[in-house]
Every structure is written in C-alpha cells, then in structure tokens.
C-alpha cells in the first residue's frame, strides 16, 4: 500500500532520489523512484557563458568554416567566407570541413584542428532537430577552446538550441538566426541570405571580450 501523504501539489519539494525520498527532513522508505537518472544533477542555470577573446576586427584573420551537411549549409558558409575576405580584410578561408555526424557535437580533436588552423569559426546551418542542438554545442565547445564562433540556426529551432545550451552548462549562449525555411532556397537566394547575415556574423566574431 502506498502511504504517500507527503505527495502534495507543492512545487518547492526537493528532488526525489533513487531509493530515498526526503521531504521536510524526513526520509521515507517507500519512495517513488526517479526515472531520469538526473535527480542529483545541479541546475546549470547560474553558470556564466565563457566566450573566447574577440579581435577588434577581422583584418588578416584566418577563417574556419564547419559545414553540418544540411542542404545549402556549405553554400552559405562559403559565400560568407568569400565576403569576409573581400570586404572585411580577412586573410583567407584556411580550413573547411564537413561534420561526419550532424547530430553529434564536435570533439576535442576537431576543435584542436580548428584552433591550429584558424582564428574564428563559422558553423551551421542548424536546420533540423538534432543538428541545430549540436551546432549550439559546437559553438560552445569552440568558445571554451578559445576560438570565437558564429553559429547559424534557422529561427524554427530556438527552443531546442536553448535546451542544448542549458545541457552544455551555458544557458545564456547566443547564436545567430536566419529565417526558416532555408533548405528550399535556390543558389541566388542562399547568397542573398549570406549577404544579409554578414554584419551579424562579423559583430558576433569581433565584439566584446569575456573573461
């Protein structure tokens, strides 16, 4: 028989832990078990987002592009890279890679390759359920490794991007959004999007210094 008199609608109750149930200082033996495995996890809400040091401008900068395989992503990134060289004085596009798995965030090995090869990274385009979340995690990973990153998602994936930022312990992390849909655009429309998002990418990669 369940004798859970303590189960109320109160929202201020402490988390249940597997095998124990603490409320009002009383440990109850016959607890309802937590199915998430994360009852002990701390809220990451308070952690400030650590951003990499920013340059004043992109003059002479080596640009890295990381394509997440989604339709039109590479085209947008290459167009942005080209414009950064021709209009903002960037030295070159020095590294271009395509993610092996769009749903899995970049690992240390990939991050290290970019850190050695370029000064700033542009990545995306987050345009699906898992790749958008992963792109946000990519940006956070690059920033933590000291490489300023501009992450581009379409505006249909705001919530999942925010969830991933929380999971990664950087709930305030900001990315750049472009209008949805994006995959259906033709070549000229993608170039037009690149042109339009360019100032925001430059601002993201150059303004402010955290730490």
């Amino acid at each position: 028989m369940i004798g859970h008199d303590r189960i109320t609608t109160s929202s201020s109750k402490p988390p249940l832990r597997t095998g124990t149930n603490i409320e009002g200082g009383t440990t109850v033996l016959n607890a309802i078990l937590d199915p998430t495995g994360r009852a002990d996890e701390l809220d990451a809400g308070a952690a400030p987002t650590t951003l990499a040091h920013r340059r004043a401008d992109l003059a002479g900068a080596h640009i890295g592009l990381l394509d997440n395989t989604k339709h039109n992503a590479m085209l947008l990134l290459q167009e942005v890279g080209k414009l950064l060289v021709s209009e903002y004085g960037a030295a070159d596009v020095s590294i271009v890679e395509t993610k092996r798995s769009f749903s899995v965030p970049v690992d240390e090995e990939i991050v290290a390759r970019y850190r050695e090869s370029c000064d700033v990274v542009i990545t995306g385009v987050g345009d699906c359920g898992s790749c958008s979340a992963a792109a946000v995690a990519d940006g956070i990973n690059f920033e933590r490794a000291g490489v300023p990153a501009a992450v581009v998602l379409t505006d249909a994936f705001l919530t999942t991007g925010r969830m991933m930022a929380q999971v990664q312990g950087a709930p305030e992390y900001e990315w750049i959004t472009i209008g949805h849909p994006f995959a259906v655009l033709d070549r000229n429309q993608v170039k037009e999007r690149a042109r339009r998002v360019l100032p925001e990418i430059v601002a993201t990669l150059t303004i402010g210094t955290a730490e």
């Binding site: 199915p35 998430t36 495995g37 994360r38 699906c128 359920g129 898992s130 958008s132 979340a133 994936f157 919530t159 999942t160 969830m163 991933m164 999971v167």
Partner: peptide
C-alpha cells in the same frame, strides 16, 4: 519513456518532431 526521461528528449524541447 526511456527516450523521454533518461535521454531527456521531450516534445518541443530536444524533441523536434
């Protein structure tokens, strides 16, 4: 429920169906 609770893939959040 395993996907929802253990992986935390809930609709409108990490789930994007």
């Amino acid at each position: 429920l395993i996907v929802r609770n253990v992986f935390g893939v809930k609709p409108h959040e990490l789930g994007q169906a």
